[in-house]
C-alpha cells in the first residue's frame, strides 16, 4: 500500500508539540523528536540546540527501516521499541501507529524505566493525533476539499525556483 501524503496543519502541530513538551518534563528527557517514517522531522522539544535534526531524522528513519526489515526476516511484524545506550546520552526510539517515530534523548538525570513508562502514555496520545490527521487527509482526498498549496502554483512558480 502506498502512504497518503502527510499534511500537517497548525492545530495538529500544536497538539503534537504539547504532548512532547510534557513528555520532556515527565520523563526528565534532554530532547524529543517526532520523525516521519520516511525520514522527515515533524516536531522537536527540549534541549535540541546543536543537534543536526535533519540528519537525526533521516538516520532514525533508516535505522527503523533496517530493523523493520530484520524483524520481517525472523517472522516479526516490526520491532516497535529500540534502546541505544551511550556513555552519557541514550536514545529511546518508539514506533507509533506504524508511521511515526518518537525519539527520546536522555541522560542519567532520567532512567530507562521512567522513559519507557512516560513514552507509553505519550505514544498513545500521539497515535490518536496522527490517526485524526490521517482521517482528515483521507476525507479531504475523498471529497476533493484538499487545500494543498500546490493546487494553485503555476509552471512559472516552479521555473522561478531554478532561475538563479
Amino acid at each position: 500500500m502506498m502512504d497518503t501524503q502527510l499534511v500537517m496543519y497548525e492545530e495538529d502541530f500544536k497538539k503534537i508539540l504539547a504532548v512532547i513538551q510534557r513528555l520532556v518534563r515527565d520523563a526528565n528527557a534532554k530532547g524529543i523528536f517526532v520523525v516521519d517514517k520516511n525520514g522527515q522531522l515533524i516536531a522537536e522539544a527540549g534541549e535540541v540546540r546543536g543537534i543536526d535534526t535533519t540528519s537525526l531524522a533521516s538516520l532514525t528513519a533508516g535505522s527503523i527501516a533496517a530493523t523493520g526489515g530484520l524483524a520481517k526476516i525472523i517472522g516479526e511484524d516490526d520491532f516497535p521499541v529500540h534502546f541505544h545506550q551511550g556513555a552519557r546520552d541514550n536514545l529511546h526510539i518508539t514506533l507509533v501507529g506504524g508511521r511515526i517515530i518518537l525519539v527520546v534523548v536522555f541522560d542519567d538525570r532520567s532512567s530507562l524505566g521512567l522513559v519507557r513508562l512516560r513514552v507509553k502514555k505519550a505514544g498513545t496520545e500521539m497515535g490518536k493525533i496522527f490517526e485524526d490527521i490521517q482521517k482528515k487527509a483521507e476525507s479531504e482526498a475523498a471529497t476533493g476539499t484538499s487545500t494543498s498549496p500546490f493546487a494553485e502554483i503555476t509552471d512559472d512558480d516552479i521555473d522561478n525556483l531554478f532561475s538563479e
Binding site: 500537517m8 497548525e10 502541530f13 500544536k14 516521519d36 520516511n38 522527515q40 515533524i42 498549496p149
Partner: peptide, 15 residues
C-alpha cells in the same frame, strides 16, 4: 511521500 507542514510552512520531497 512529500510532507507539507503548514506550521513551519515547509514542503519536503524525497528523491
Amino acid at each position: 511521500m512529500s510532507f507539507i507542514n503548514y506550521s513551519s510552512r515547509e514542503i519536503n520531497c524525497k528523491i
